[in-house]
């Protein structure tokens, strides 16, 4: 067994922040325990000897699936803003971004 990722090392709070999920303390604790179990299980894939084995990205892989460079009409501004949780003056509104 490799020791890259001992399942005890999962930092659920860090990962939840990367995924932009706010977790309560209780949730963090529950997920911590469950993930340790699940990660402990999926470590199985690292037991296999995969020397010389190429990864598979899809069931069936083809290549060079291109689209011709031709512009087409999309949606109207009104159509898409109808779905917006907040909008003003043709823009999607979000809380002020501080850079």
């Amino acid at each position: 067994m490799m020791d890259v990722a001992g399942e005890k090392n999962i930092d659920v709070a860090y990962v939840a922040h990367l995924a932009r999920l706010r977790l309560s303390e209780e949730e963090t604790a529950v997920f911590q325990k469950q993930l340790e179990g699940i990660v402990g299980y999926v470590n199985k894939v690292r037991e296999i000897d995969t020397t010389g084995v190429e990864p598979t990205a899809h069931g069936r892989s083809v290549q060079n699936v291109f689209r011709e460079d031709m512009a087409r009409e999309g949606l109207t501004t009104e159509e898409v803003l109808r779905n917006a949780p907040a909008q003003r003056d043709g823009l999607f509104v979000v809380p002020k971004i501080v850079e």
Binding site: V42, V45, I48, E54, T56
Partner: peptide, 9 residues
């Protein structure tokens, strides 16, 4: 990556 290799097998 390991999972994708397992997938090949």
């Amino acid at each position: 990556l390991a999972a994708q290799k397992a997938r090949t097998l």
